[in-house]
Write a protein that binds this DNA or RNA. Structure first.
Lengths: 129, 129
DNA sequence: TATATGTATTATGACGAATAGTACAGTTGA
DNA sequence: TCAACTGTACTATTCGTCATAATACATATA
């Protein structure tokens, strides 16, 4: 569920942060659901507890979770981030991907069909409201 | 033209590599066009010549340029890379972006129209065959 | 030959990531 | 009360990568 890519350039704590955000955002982790304890997740992923703590701290700071000493860390019900900025970033990435695909020889139709396919398969996979 | 972001997490040599690839695939740098000399570009960007060399070496290894000792480094006319792997990677990224956009409230139509728009605007900017 | 080009090598410093270890505070239930 | 869990904080250390520095060498060309 929290699988990591140890060969990635991105640091573990950041991969974990992004992964958990994705799980929250896609509704896999429900509001107020408890996350694995720092030490538990550290053991599960065979990484240092400090690394997990760093990720949780970041998630807390960005508003995705809240932590209660002695109790645990939980998914924050409200999503705080400004979607406009996020959308701009996504659009920028999308633009680059499309440019690459066109260069690699895909036609406009092929790309559009691929997008349609990904949209339809995604709808089945994630439900959040 | 080869502007860098020194605050980025990506190393300089990789930023430069990607930047040059982008210039090549978008047709800004023409086939057989000479790239700036290692030492010249190093001075221009105020980085170490070894850093430039590392980028050029990577570009050579990936087939985007060819280097002739005593002459210089030039844009390779044919693009050699195995597109299959690159496409798989792009498709994977695309899938994630679409999932995020759907979550952020964009409709399927909106995404498809955005893609069409990006495709049409891209076609004007890049020409390679 | 002088000067440009790419290439290779070794050494070094700087920085961040991850680990190791310890300690402290709050919660919970036996 | 006490043991066992939770999050949190802190220092020290190891490790790898990036970038630099400084040479050296081979090739091309005017």
């Amino acid at each position: 569920m929290f699988d990591l890519d140890l060969r990635s350039r991105a640091p573990i704590y950041e991969q974990l942060t992004e992964k958990i955000i994705e799980l929250i955002v896609n509704g896999v982790l429900k509001p107020d659901e408890q996350l694995p304890a720092v030490r538990v997740l550290a053991a599960e992923l065979t990484v240092n507890p400090n690394t997990i703590q760093k990720a949780y701290k970041e998630l807390d700071h960005r508003g995705y979770i809240y932590s209660l000493p002695g109790k645990g860390s939980f998914v924050r019900p409200a999503i705080p981030e400004d979607h406009t900025l996020r959308l701009q970033s996504l659009e920028h990435d999308l633009k680059r991907i499309i440019a690459q695909m066109l260069y690699l020889g895909l036609s406009a139709d092929q790309i559009e069909n691929l997008v349609k396919h990904l949209i339809s398969t995604n709808k089945g996979g994630s439900s959040h409201d």
